[in-house]
Nucleic acid binder design. Structure first.
Length: 217
DNA sequence: GACCAGGCACATC
DNA sequence: GATGTGCATGGT
């Protein structure tokens, strides 16, 4: 498909989603640190479970970098239990905090001063942070214009024949970033709207739906 | 009771 | 480099 047509189709998809669903108000969090924690906790997990875990962290007064850095991994795991995979996720939160305190003295402001390509490389080196988690952090906590790709994004795009069925993360990300203006607000809205589309149609249980995430056609 | 959810690291071939 | 597996809770 030529570049101009692809630009038009991606833009039209966005406009249609926006007109249908309106702004999604992502990321739902009070602070940048809460965005980062949520990004780790939501790995392969329903957001409703993440909300419970975030409430647990707030109740235990652990939702700040310094508090979470000091608490034991065991206590941290107990606080995030409802999010599932709690032992692994506690280790992942700890590995991020180790990085934050070792390289940036525990300061998110200092961390986000780093230019995007360098920070992205550094975050990808943190054990437990993969591409989707890192890009979510950069986009929604750091307000950097980078497109977040997830399972929904790939499923929807491939069923609309905009990418092949086996397109990988980087290919899918490049499709958006090569054909749309690098606007972090729009990128954030676009990703949220794709998730909304997948969930909404799923909820309607339309058996003929081509993008339903539950019915893996 | 089965299936799914806003992944990731690691083992094995 | 591709493919398989463990990690775990809560909603439908």
């Amino acid at each position: 498909m030529n570049i101009t047509l692809m630009k038009k189709r991606l833009r039209r998809l966005y406009d249609t989603l926006y007109k249908t669903f309106g702004p999604q108000g992502w990321w739902p969090a009070d602070t940048r640190f809460e965005v980062i924690v949520g990004a780790i906790l939501t790995q392969n997990t329903a957001w409703s479970n993440v909300e419970k875990a975030i409430r647990g962290l707030k109740a235990a007064k652990l939702l700040t970098p310094s508090a979470m850095y000091r608490v034991s991994e065991k206590k941290l795991a107990a606080a995030i239990r409802p999010s599932g995979y709690y032992n692994i996720k506690a280790a992942r939160l700890k590995s991020f905090l180790g990085f934050l305190f070792t390289d940036y003295g525990g300061s998110l402001s200092r961390m986000f001063c780093r230019d995007m390509p360098a920070l992205r490389r550094e975050l990808l080196n943190v054990k437990g942070l993969g591409k989707e988690t890192v890009d979510s952090i950069l986009l929604y906590a750091g307000a950097r214009p980078i497109f977040v790709v997830d399972a929904y994004t790939r499923r929807i795009l491939s069923r609309h024949k905009l990418i092949s069925e086996d397109a990988d993360y980087d290919t899918t990300q490049r499709l958006f970033m090569d054909h749309l203006p690098h606007d972090n607000a729009m990128f954030g809205e676009y990703h949220a709207l794709l998730v909304r589309l997948a969930k909404d149609i799923c909820k309607n249980k339309n058996p003929r739906c081509g993008v339903c995430p539950v019915k893996k056609l």
